[in-house]
Amino acid sequence: MRRTLTVAVATAALMLLGGPLPVAGADGSGTARAADGWSAREAEAFWTPERMASAEPVTPGVPGTRAAKAGIGENFDGIPVVGRMFVMQGGGAYFCTASVVASPGHDLVLSAAHCLLGPDSRQVAFVPRYTRAKPRPYGMFPVLRGTNGRPKVWIDPRYPREGPDRAATVDAAFAQVGPDAEGWRVQDVVGANRLVTGATYTHARVELIGYPATSARPRRCHNRTTKFTSTDPGIPGSFLRIDCTGYPGGTSGGPFLAHYDPQTGTGEVVGVIGGWKTGGTTPDTSYSSYFGKEIRKLYETAVAGARGA
């Protein structure tokens, strides 16, 4: 059983955010408010601690056995740049993992495409370092909406057109989040990982962080990555592979962090859980789409879109 649910379509819109930090409301007050009315305070009122705790993973849990030479995962209290992405789909509350990626606007987060592709995704919000005990330690950052009312998410157009198997090599998505309830942008509050594209498939050490559905806290593990080339003609391409124990549903979108610095809690993001069979078929081996020129182009499109270009 694959780690993800299949969803149908996605769209992206552009909006300009400008001005100094923190961002003031249109009335000149210090209250941050998105132009379409989906503000941080409204996101906090909607995503109560109880609703967040009851959210299910976008992906169902997957049984499996421990992989050979796997890194041993452990639950921990998390790091500020990684959190849960909450989304309402079809009347249900769901979540994936997401992380802040450095951008000129200080307002982009990165996850897997299959996490944010739902045709009826609404009330989408990012919560850095979420745990059940401390559900909003750094506030809540709502994913902005475009003029069409859809969340501002950038996904390679091949992914909704060809589906998660044929387009598994581009299973990544960027989303623009608005300021928190105090008016601060996410990167200024928690920092950011640096996006790296065009690197090798093989890294001597990668920190893998995700939010398992089975845990009240996130999970971390480190191990080397290897190159995996699919022999399934229905899922073509090459992917990063890492053996780390205990990454079931909910961990999709979790970052692969190379050169991770425990002092700053940041690193170079070279992948996210997703791609081959949308992240893997057992919880002890995870995959990522290769971050090459396609992901770089997608990032540049998101940066331009977030600026209103």
Rank of each mutant, 00 (worst) to 15 (best):
G191P: 07
L195T: 05
R185D: 08
P179S: 11
V190L: 06
V196T: 11
V170R: 07
F174L: 06
D171C: 02
A199V: 10
W184P: 05
V177T: 06
A181C: 12
F174C: 00
A175Q: 01
V196H: 09
T197L: 13
V177P: 00
D188N: 14
R166H: 08
E182N: 13
D165N: 14
L195M: 04
G178Y: 02
V196K: 10
A173S: 12
A172F: 07
D171M: 00
V170N: 05
P179I: 04
G198I: 08
V177E: 06
G191W: 04
V170L: 14
D171P: 03
D165Y: 15
T197G: 10
A199I: 06
N193Q: 09
T197K: 07
T200N: 15
V189W: 01
A168S: 15
Q176M: 07
R185N: 11
V190D: 03
R166D: 12
L195I: 04
V170D: 07
A199R: 03
V190G: 03
W184Q: 15
T169F: 11
N193H: 10
E182L: 09
G178T: 11
T169M: 12
V177C: 03
R166N: 10
Q187S: 09
D171G: 01
A167I: 09
W184Y: 14
A181L: 10
V189R: 05
G191Y: 05
A172V: 13
N193V: 00
T200E: 15
T197W: 12
P179Y: 05
V177R: 01
A181F: 03
T169A: 14
V189Q: 03
R194E: 12
N193S: 09
A168H: 04
E182S: 10
A192P: 07
V190H: 13
D188G: 11
W184D: 14
A172H: 05
A192W: 04
Q176G: 00
A175N: 00
F174A: 01
T169N: 14
N193L: 06
A173M: 04
V189H: 02
R166F: 07
A175P: 00
G178I: 05
